[in-house]
Design a binder for these strands. Structure first.
Length: 274
DNA sequence: CAAAGAACCTGGCGGC
DNA sequence: TGCCGCCAGGTTCTTT
């Protein structure tokens, strides 16, 4: 489910609710979420900790504790993180993987496909851990020149590169498709062969698309909901993603669905130049 | 080293 | 109705 806009939406909603709160107790109905750590070790490392703030890096959510340690949660495909006033019971515990009891309310991590992860980064190791990720596309360091550096000399298809988290952090299948359409670039283009003006356009399209998606609180195709359990709104504005067979909103040509890097890819063969 | 492909999971859907 | 294969917003490990 969640790419940068969805994770950022959850962060914005949750941050004011968890700031200064203490994790009183942790329930771990499915210990694989904390693997390779045991449930006991995970519980010991998180309970009693006071949360300083909630931050995001790429698609990772970070509960920063006052002692310097960080609890990291990655939702992968179907993870959901919600704030609850009451402890879930019965049907609402289906697919529940983690439940944090705060001094006021609960943070629940549900995950149908069980691909999501929760883990801890000790105070000293934080800096090096996040170095593996590329720049934040909405950050100051992500300039057209920076994007040009990322694409230079690369033989890879541009869409695959955009989704490579070590190149740029936070873009997934939805926003890669939408940004490439907005920029008028075929997703299969070798990254290193983009012209300067295409790179400038793509840079602007990435930022514009992500910002708009955050405003609309993310995209809900299937399972995604925000921290309040509500669906996002950006799926209503999809230009090409999941719209194969429908007319291109710009030229009317039929939108096609192909595979790029093993992922379903939607684009307009007329507007997006190969 | 870079790039492609398989593996990890579960559930929903279309086809037969 | 039942079974089967395919598909899904992501990452990581293995293979080329």
């Amino acid at each position: 489910m969640p790419e940068l806009p969805e994770v950022e939406t959850i962060r914005r909603q949750l941050d004011p609710l968890v700031r200064g709160r203490t994790i009183r107790r942790v329930e771990i109905p499915d210990p694989t979420v904390a693997a390779p750590w045991s449930a006991a070790r995970f519980r010991r490392a998180t309970s009693g900790k006071r949360i300083k703030q909630l931050t995001r890096r790429g698609k990772y959510l970070r509960f920063e504790f006052e002692d310097g340690d960080t609890l990291v949660i990655h939702l992968r495909m179907t993870g959901r993180l919600t704030h609850l006033k009451r402890r879930p019971s019965g049907d609402s515990r289906r697919h529940l993987r983690l439940l944090f009891h705060l001094d006021d309310g609960f943070i629940a991590f549900h995950d149908t496909r069980r691909l999501g992860k929760a883990f801890l980064i000790p105070a000293g190791e934080s800096r090096t851990y996040w170095q593996k990720l590329g720049p934040e596309p909405l950050g100051r360091s992500f300039t057209p020149a920076r994007l040009a550096k990322i694409t230079a000399g690369r033989d890879r298809q541009i869409k695959t590169l955009l989704m490579d988290q070590s190149a740029i952090a936070g873009i997934g299948n939805i926003y890669a498709d939408e940004a490439l359409f907005d920029a008028g670039i075929d997703p299969r283009r070798p990254a290193g062969k983009l012209t300067q003006s295409e790179i400038t356009r793509l840079h602007a399209s990435i930022r514009k698309t992500l910002k708009k998606a955050i405003e609309l609180e993310g995209s809900s195709i299937d399972s995604y909901v925000n921290a309040r359990g509500e669906r996002g709104g950006f799926q209503e504005t999809f230009q090409v993603h999941r719209r194969q067979g429908k007319p291109c909103p710009r030229c009317g040509h039929v939108i096609e669905k192909i595979k790029v890097g093993g992922r379903s890819t939607y684009f307009c063969p007329h507007c997006q130049k190969l």
